[in-house]
């Protein structure tokens, strides 16, 4: 049996009396495309926040490629190959696109502690950043400030920052949210083109688009895993219908 890319075991999290994650377990194989679905308030983003380390679970374990990372800080997880995007866009608005992506690259390098050389003089980082921007179709805007971007372009930049790090596990939190139809198609193609070296776990509401990208699906409701398995199996499952149709 090969090691799992991401393994979550019996995860629990409560805010006061509100249980937002209840005994959640997930197993994601290397290279897998996993979609996490569920109604609003099902605890999807909270689960992501625990996987990325922004929130500490009350109990349970999180493993990345077999290594227990439950007690590690977000930045330590990043250095172990975990990368994520946010549902609410968190970019560096006053800076250029190039700077944003370069900063993303810098995060994993020892040069981030370097105190005398400006970031823009790291030619290889800049080249790499521009290549990544090109891959998401934003190269022509590299020297523009993020605040000048349209919403859909910001979403793509978010993706670029995560992709630039060549993560082993990538968490995408609603990458399609708020996009127009044509933008959706662009981002969908982008996600589809991600190398199989990267395991992708994605939260998405837009099932029409997202299901095409997924191999496996996990349905969450009220902080619990309701159904978990191959895509078609989950879609066909009676319980999925219940959750979505309120039956």
């Amino acid at each position: 049996m090969s090691t799992l890319a991401l393994e979550v075991t019996a995860l629990n999290k409560a805010f006061g009396g509100l249980k937002v994650t209840q005994g959640v377990s997930l197993s994601v194989r290397p290279g897998e495309r996993r979609l996490i679905i569920g109604p609003n308030g099902a605890g999807k983003t909270t689960l992501f926040n625990q996987i990325s380390g922004d929130l500490r679970p009350n109990s349970g374990r999180i493993r990345l490629f077999g290594e227990d990372v439950t007690a590690l800080s977000p930045y330590q997880r990043a250095h172990r190959g975990l990368s994520r995007t946010y549902q609410i866009i968190t970019l560096f608005g006053g800076d250029t696109l190039e700077h944003n992506v370069t900063l993303g690259l810098l995060g994993l390098l020892p040069s981030r502690w370097q105190m005398w050389r400006p970031l823009s003089t790291y030619r290889h980082l800049v080249t790499e950043a521009r290549r990544t921007l090109d891959s998401v179709g934003l190269l022509h805007l590299a020297h523009h400030s993020v605040s000048e971007l349209a919403y859909g372009e910001k979403r793509r930049l978010e993706l670029a920052m995560a992709l630039a790090q060549k993560p082993r596990v990538l968490l995408l939190d609603e990458p399609l949210a708020g996009l127009s139809n044509s933008e959706r198609a662009t981002v969908k193609a982008l996600v589809a083109s991600i190398s199989k070296d990267t395991t992708v776990v994605m939260i998405e509401h837009d099932m029409d688009t997202a299901l095409d990208l997924a191999e496996t699906v996990t349905l969450l409701n009220y902080g619990r895993v309701i159904v978990d398995g191959e895509r078609d199996q989950v879609i066909a499952d009676e319980r999925t219908r219940e959750v979505y149709l309120g039956g």
Binding site: Y75, Y86, T90, G107, M161, Q165
Partner: peptide
């Protein structure tokens, strides 16, 4: 200063 959470997710130790 601007985005501590994002920076941590990118691998920086805020």
């Amino acid at each position: 200063r601007d985005q501590p959470r994002r920076m941590a997710a990118l691998g920086f130790n805020p």
